[in-house]
């Protein structure tokens, strides 16, 4: 085995492990093993088709659109994917996000960068010569950011000066999460792809702040009970390898 074959093999095993772990939830791992064994014996048509390999890089369109709507929200995000073995892709994204929240009693700013790495499994089935996919994806996400309570107000209406106003200095924080998603990528021009994906994030570790919470996390979004929804619109370009 050449080094590249070994890495393909390892990544492939990793994917099967990830997907199997999801099937265990339904208690159907035994059935699944049988089916897989059967599938390995028969030669499927896709084995004979030359897969199109390449590195696909893209930028997120949602960020610039949200900046047009809300100038206090800045989001720049890039992404990539690359087929490593048949229907399996490594994929990820990284970016920078600045988010300001303003209400009567609480104004805060979240500012930082993030990276997400993982893989996609193509459920669409392969079309020769194309890299379209309908993918189930898993990512690990990491963000390094700062949280600042720019102003908070405590109003206690009776006294003539009945409003207390203060702020909390900038605090540095980290957050770690798992992202599950379903995404569609379609070639619209030669080697140009449009992508849409939707998914959910599960926050499993974040820095405890002094007298505040990580209400918003770059790349993760609005933190609701350690979960958030994410939607991505991307335009991508494929650098073909073969």
């Amino acid at each position: 085995m050449t080094p590249s074959n070994i890495s393909k093999y390892l990544i492939n095993r990793f994917f099967i492990l990830l997907l199997l772990s999801s099937t265990i939830v339904f208690g159907q791992d035994k059935i699944d093993n049988k089916e897989e064994a059967k599938a390995e014996k028969t030669i499927s048509p896709s084995d004979t088709i030359p897969y199109k390999y390449g590195l696909r890089i893209g930028i997120d369109l949602g960020g610039p659109i949200s900046m047009l709507i809300d100038s206090d929200h800045k989001l720049f995000k890039g992404n990539f994917d690359a087929r490593v073995y048949k229907k399996y892709f490594v994929s990820g994204e990284m970016g920078y996000e600045l988010y300001k929240y303003k209400t009567e009693n609480l104004n805060y700013t979240t500012d930082g960068s993030f990276i997400m790495l993982g893989g996609d499994y193509d459920m669409l089935g392969y079309t020769p010569g194309r890299n379209d996919l309908l993918a189930f994806g898993v990512r690990y996400g990491l963000a390094k950011f700062s949280q600042t309570v720019d102003e908070y107000k405590i109003q206690n209406g009776y006294w003539l000066d009945d409003t207390f106003i203060s702020n909390i200095e900038v605090q540095e924080a980290y957050a770690h999460w798992i992202n599950l998603r379903i995404g569609l990528k379609v070639e619209v021009l030669h080697n140009f792809y449009l992508g849409f994906s939707g998914g959910v994030n599960f926050l499993f570790l974040d820095t405890n702040l002094d007298n505040f919470d990580n209400l918003y996390i770059p790349g993760f979004g609005e933190n609701r009970n350690n979960k958030s929804w994410v939607f991505n619109y991307t335009v991508m370009y494929l650098l073909p390898f073969n």
Partner: peptide, 17 residues
């Protein structure tokens, strides 16, 4: 099989949340 299961798994989580 993997395809169906991962889709079921994903939709199940969506529904839960």
């Amino acid at each position: 099989m993997i395809k169906k299961l991962s889709l079921t798994f994903f939709l199940g989580i969506m529904l839960l949340l």
